[in-house]
Design a protein around this nucleic acid. Structure first.
Lengths: 108, 108
DNA sequence: ACAAACCATAACCAAATGGTTATTGTTTGT
DNA sequence: ACAAACAATAACCATTTGGTTATGGTTTGT
């Protein structure tokens, strides 16, 4: 598995509006910019810019369909965050270690 | 366990210098501001300000000892981040669920 | 007693950030 | 054909952010 810097992911998720958009896409699935704009409570350009940031962090993908653009969450992009937690979240380390060992033995 | 907003934690970890300080404290244990300043490669006031931000997110604790202040990581404060991943990192959810179930059965 | 060490705070600054309105390019419906 | 809908970009603005140097308050070593 390719290792990606955690930095863009942390930066992208640091903003509440952006995190809210990602959460909404995770909960409700794919949505247009229009729908997301209604949801987010900020202007459409603001939403577009936030989506661009999320896109650079690979947290969302987009799909053009006619005049509308559909965005969907790509939660695999959270992997760097999980990796980071494994390395520096000492409190969780034992948990993760045990987990990985177990999962290893479970699915070969 | 008290539930804290994930926002200060995300904000605090969004900056590379701050994340680096937290990582250093996690790896090497408790350290003075002086030592951290040598490590971070920025001025001492910059380090102090970063530590203040980390402190507000509960990611570090400090202990005055004479004229020096010792800081140490408090990785339990990463809990909101883990919680958030559990809720919105759909990709990881199964993993977490299986983990928890397994750990449950392991240590009673 | 006093100079030096340690750290926090103040004052300041340039750059980044998150928002806005205006505009433009497509696509769609009539 | 054309007006309206959708989304991205541009231009702009206020605030926040991350850094600096300067200063002040304790504590320590001599």
């Amino acid at each position: 598995m390719k290792r990606v810097s955690a930095n863009p992911v942390f930066r992208a998720l640091a903003d509440p509006t952006r995190r809210s958009l990602f959460e909404e896409l995770t909960r409700q699935g794919e949505q247009t910019v229009h729908a997301l704009t209604r949801y987010a409570g900020v202007s459409q350009p603001a939403v577009s810019k936030h989506l661009t940031v999320l896109k650079r962090a690979k947290l969302v993908r987009h799909r053009r369909e006619g005049r509308e653009t559909h965005y969907r969450a790509q939660p695999e992009a959270l992997a760097p965050l999980v990796d980071w937690l494994e390395h520096y979240g000492a409190f969780w380390r034992d948990r993760f270690d045990r987990l990985e060992a177990l999962l290893e033995r479970m699915d070969p």
